[in-house]
């Protein structure tokens, strides 16, 4: 199924029109398997959903870079996935002018039982590159991840930072016109992060579009034109970068002060 539709004639990079999406809640861990099974046996088949995005209408223009903020990571991630087309809206339409490369948890796919080369080919393939295209970049990718000498060795127990670098550089090699990036910038070594920002800056000057979700928007402000803030009711507000960050901090503070009294009640 060609579920990711591209409209080359569209003016904007991505266009959301009255988009709503509800996602299934992650299963709760507590209670264990038996309780879950008993509940199912008793006929509880309906699974809870939460509203990830509600009636979102906004447009991102080509060349813009937009920060996606919000107190909950599931909401931010849902927005990125909607933009890239790896999840479809319940209602409303999402149109995109070109392919968006979603960079969400890419490092998880890297298999430790496979060689670095194989992992690069596979990840590249999943992101839509042909092996010929990957072949062009494979040396560069391994080099910038610091794995140039280990190209044909198993990835093994490579540290998370190395995996992350590998995933990042592979995704960047797609040379896409738009990226939807989740969290990558919040973690990793400072040096690598600086490198990522340099890369983003360079791509921005070439007119590449970015949608970046982050939990820690510190130091990011310089790289973005504006922000989209997703509130607790999963509604989206278009703000400037500072406004978005301010809103997010306020939400965090509110969340923390909400939690505190609850904790003390539980103690009693």
């Amino acid at each position: 199924m060609a579920r990711i539709r591209i409209e080359p004639n569209l003016e904007s990079a991505v266009d959301f029109r009255h988009v709503s999406l509800a996602l299934p809640k992650r299963k709760r861990r507590q209670g264990g398997g038996r309780r879950q099974r008993l509940r199912r046996l008793a006929g509880e088949t309906r699974r809870e959903e939460f509203a990830a995005v509600t009636d979102a209408s906004f447009t991102v223009h080509p060349g813009e870079s937009v920060l996606v903020l919000g107190a909950r990571s599931a909401h931010r991630r849902a927005l990125l996935r909607l933009a890239a087309g790896t999840v479809l809206p319940d209602s409303g339409t999402v149109e995109r002018r070109f392919l968006w490369v979603p960079m969400i948890d890419l490092a998880r796919t890297l298999g430790r039982g496979f060689t670095v080369r194989h992992n690069i080919y596979l990840l590249g393939g999943l992101l839509g590159m042909t092996p010929d295209q990957v072949a062009e970049f494979v040396a560069d990718i391994a080099d910038s991840a610091g794995l140039a000498s280990k190209l044909d060795r198993h990835l093994g127990q490579a540290p998370a930072s190395v995996r992350q670098k590998l995933a990042w550089t592979t995704a960047m090699a797609t040379n896409a016109q738009a990226f939807a990036i989740d969290e990558v910038l919040a973690v990793g070594e400072p040096a690598f992060r600086a490198q990522c920002f340099a890369h983003i800056a360079e791509l921005r000057s070439r007119g590449v579009t970015f949608l970046v979700a982050s939990e820690a928007p510190r130091q990011l402000d310089a790289h973005f034109d504006r922000s989209l803030y997703i509130d607790d009711e999963s509604r989206i507000h278009a703000l400037d970068v500072d406004g978005g960050i301010e809103r997010m901090r306020a939400a965090r503070r509110a969340l923390r002060s909400d939690e505190d009294p609850q904790d003390s009640e539980d103690d009693n």
Partner: peptide, 12 residues
């Protein structure tokens, strides 16, 4: 599951 989050390939 991990791949479905970002994979641009047809689900089949």
């Amino acid at each position: 599951r991990g791949e479905l989050i970002f994979s641009l390939l047809p689900t089949q």
